[in-house]
């Protein structure tokens, strides 16, 4: 647990290769680090700094701006309960209160067994399904307190294997076959694209 492992370092290089400037890969690589360890370690940030050729301070500057990156260990299941306006109107505060009571933690806290972290979060774009929540960024809609208890019970019993560990976002990655890649559009010495110059345009 620390630097990106060999597999992830290979993925990191593949991601970096898609961008005209290496630093653009910073956020995807921080996700990769979080997927590996469940949170973003200082060692991972230093490693990423090397990979994208910036200072660790710059990596931390970016990392600390974004809510999803946790710079300390969190629960296996990060429960984000939406308290955006639509959910607020339909009982989000009560749901958060219930979650904190039943799990015995306060906002952002982690249960003693390390399984759950609960946090009230801003709008997660499921407003018509209020009140809603995400567990490791997987949705549960129109959640009652009973639904919440059932969800926690299901997770505890291992019935929700569809929810990946914290840090894993998309289970499907983009993969650009080498022979199909157009390649990054480099900033320096770029030319007008061939199809434009031949076909003409109003540009």
């Amino acid at each position: 647990m620390a630097r990106l492992n060999a597999d992830n370092e290979r993925i990191a290089h593949e991601i970096i290769g898609r961008y005209p400037r290496k630093k653009s890969a910073l956020i995807p690589l921080l996700h990769l680090a979080q997927e590996q360890d469940g949170w973003v370690t200082d060692e991972a940030m230093s490693h990423i700094a090397d990979l994208v050729e910036v200072t660790p301070a710059e990596v931390l500057g970016t990392c600390s701006f974004y809510e999803m990156f946790k710079r300390h260990p969190v629960g296996d299941y990060h429960v984000n309960i939406c308290h955006g306006i639509a959910c607020h109107l339909l009982g989000a505060d009560e749901l958060i209160h219930h979650a904190e009571e039943t799990l015995g933690v306060k906002g952002g806290g982690t249960t003693d067994d390390g399984r759950f972290t609960v946090e009230g979060v801003e709008c997660i774009a499921a407003c018509t399904e209020a009140p809603c929540l995400q567990v490791n960024y997987r949705f549960a809609n129109k959640v009652t307190t009973q639904d919440f208890d059932a969800l926690i019970a299901d997770i505890r019993s291992g019935a929700r294997s569809d929810i990946p560990p914290h840090g894993t976002l998309a289970k499907t990655r983009q993969s650009i076959p080498e022979e199909r890649a157009a390649g990054p559009a480099l900033v320096e010495d770029a030319q007008e694209p061939a199809w434009l110059s031949r076909n003409g345009s109003d540009q």
Partner: peptide
């Protein structure tokens, strides 16, 4: 660039790694 803005919004601070 060894000092940098860290965190966000009202909690923004300057710090080092």
């Amino acid at each position: 660039p060894l000092i940098h803005f860290m965190d966000r919004g009202n909690q923004t601070q300057v710090n080092t790694f």
